[in-house]
Amino acid sequence: MFIVMFEFVPKTGKEADFLCAWPKVTQGIYLLHGSLGSRLHKDEEGRWIAYAQWPDRATWEQAATNSMSEDYEQQRMHMHDALNLEATRILYKMDVACDYLQRRPFAVDN
């Protein structure tokens, strides 16, 4: 699995627009680009940090060349319009070494 971590910086007064568009863009990437999903976080200092999971680096790189639906492109433009693109950046590109992230409880051996 491959992870890409972002810091998104909304323009002043555009945070709500960013929060409206982000899930729609993320769903499009999941459905049409082959991602495994993404999570958006807000840290203690108010920064928006997201990480996206991909099956591998090649799938992530190929996603940039895939064409998307018109609706997805409109949502992507709404998100871009809400962001300070000069300050928004990729923080990390990482391969997963160990994965214990679960959505349900799991047994721990003592």
Rank of each mutant, 00 (worst) to 15 (best):
F2Y: 14
I3S: 14
I3H: 05
M5R: 12
V9I: 13
P10A: 04
G13T: 05
G13W: 05
K14W: 00
F18C: 13
C20I: 04
C20N: 05
C20K: 02
C20F: 03
A21V: 01
K24S: 14
K24F: 02
V25S: 01
V25I: 13
V25E: 02
Q27G: 00
G28Q: 03
I29S: 09
I29R: 12
I29M: 08
L32P: 00
H33N: 14
G34Q: 03
S35K: 02
S35P: 01
L36S: 00
G37D: 13
G37E: 07
G37S: 09
G37I: 03
K42C: 08
D43W: 03
E44P: 05
E45I: 09
R47T: 04
W48V: 01
I49F: 02
Q53P: 00
W54M: 01
P55K: 04
P55F: 09
P55N: 05
D56C: 10
D56H: 08
R57W: 03
R57T: 09
A58G: 15
E61C: 02
A63S: 11
A63L: 14
A63P: 10
T65R: 02
N66K: 11
S67L: 09
E70I: 11
D71H: 14
E73H: 12
R76I: 00
R76Y: 01
R76Q: 07
M77G: 00
H78E: 07
H78L: 08
H78P: 00
H80Y: 12
A82W: 00
A82P: 01
L83Q: 07
L83N: 11
L85N: 15
L85F: 04
E86I: 11
T88H: 14
R89P: 01
L91I: 15
K93V: 10
D95R: 12
D95V: 13
V96N: 11
A97K: 11
C98S: 06
D99H: 12
D99M: 07
Q102T: 14
R103A: 04
V108L: 14
V108G: 09
N110Q: 13
